[in-house]
Design a protein around this nucleic acid. Sequence first.
DNA 1: CGAAACCTTGACTGAGGTCAAAACGTGTGG
DNA 2: CCACACGTTTTGACCTCAGTCAAGGTTTCG
Lengths: 262, 262
Amino acid sequence: MSDVAAYPVIAPARIPLQAPPAAARSPAIARASQKDGQRCTACSMRSICMPQGLTPREMQRIESFICPSRTIRQGETIYRANDSFQSIYAVRAGSFKTVVMHRDGREQVTGFHLAGDSLGLDGVCFGHHSCDAIAIEDSNVCIIPFHLLEAMCREVKAVQQHLHRIMGGEIVRESSQMMLLGTMSAEQRVATFLLNLSDRLRMRGYSPAEFHLRMTREEIGSYLGIKLETVSRMLSKFQRDGLVDIHGKDIRILDHERLVSV
Amino acid sequence: MSDVAAYPVIAPARIPLQAPPAAARSPAIARASQKDGQRCTACSMRSICMPQGLTPREMQRIESFICPSRTIRQGETIYRANDSFQSIYAVRAGSFKTVVMHRDGREQVTGFHLAGDSLGLDGVCFGHHSCDAIAIEDSNVCIIPFHLLEAMCREVKAVQQHLHRIMGGEIVRESSQMMLLGTMSAEQRVATFLLNLSDRLRMRGYSPAEFHLRMTREEIGSYLGIKLETVSRMLSKFQRDGLVDIHGKDIRILDHERLVSV
DNA sequence: CGAAACCTTGACTGAGGTCAAAACGTGTGG
DNA sequence: CCACACGTTTTGACCTCAGTCAAGGTTTCG
């Protein structure tokens, strides 16, 4: 618990009333279960997924309609493309990938979603989802019925603005990914991926220099628009050049500066 | 006016009170000025940019805060990256590209926006825009102050849902563009681009088979993540294969089926 | 402990990038 | 109305980065 000394340990919240399922033995879930918290108020992800400055009453109102959280085992989906859209999801623990698929079988990872991220907004437009959301480790999500969230948005400005910021953030994130896919070399893509992940872990209180990849080389490659062999070659190259230290899925960033300037 | 017989001519709306500026001589603006309409009620883009089933009162309310439309000449911007975000824009006539830029000068077209499309939502998340919106022909936009739109969303469910659909649509559009950039061959990208443009023109009442490109090969290439020479080569190839008939920027789609199956 | 999934590395290939030159269009000013 | 200049497009020749295929090593999980 103190091996990440410099970074606060993520505290958990909204543990389901039932005894934790078998899956809770996995690290991510276990982490989320360390402390007992039933409410958003106590959730460490609050600062990411909830607006600031709500009154206790408003807070309670939100908690009242957030469904009991759900545990999703590695490889399982929260929703699939064409599933009817009812709710959005906030990742409480674990991580997910979203995958879009073309009829011809071509498929692409469009995002990795860590604790505190939202999932499911792709369904807002057409009332059905446009991608699969798949757990890449045993995970846990809050379920937020969208029509209730919309109702709340009509009453509380801060909630409305927060939802708009989340949706707007998704738009900006995707357009910077389009820039990566459209203009960067394989080397730059992999460097950008590592730096981006590092940033997001730092914002969540984890070490930005040392972390464990939850996804395979193939998933990274799909996300970056390159092949898994190319991902591997670039990582090896960074290793040779002393920018990173890599053992399988364990990453240590040695030279942040030079990684930025790749 | 009847040379597109099978497709209804797009009617205009919300012409500014002042005499039309010099720019109004250009085709897109002239088209928008053919009929005199001061209100959204009369705007042909209504079905695209306004929700269905508003009461006259609600309609009036919206019209009351939409600012006088603004004319933007080819090459001019509505907003630039880092400009403070105040309003979103609905394209009334003409077309735009949005361009994101990296510090190192790399830049990429992230979208083309036709009459009826919205612009500016990239600013919602951080309060400043993350791309430039540049007119690729003389154009005209409605200006919708975002905080007033948000206020209206709190009062009228239909307006709220419409905004959410527009934002959600942007998310879906971008993720399918990520799939294009991540997995398709140059040939498929260009075919997809033509088909997509054709679809959007059809939905706006124009011929889906015959149209005029407003953008250069370089802008198309940037949008598709390939070089302008490659765009040109693919178009020539489609021409040789009898899929399209191309003269400069005038496109005629001859074999929609085979274009789909590229 | 063994099977399956995942990762690394090498050799070869090819799609698309780069560079260059010429053709085409369009708007401007004489 | 023409001529010129500039931006745009096309096409060819060549090159390179990343994809493909293959083989062997490592990790993970039942």
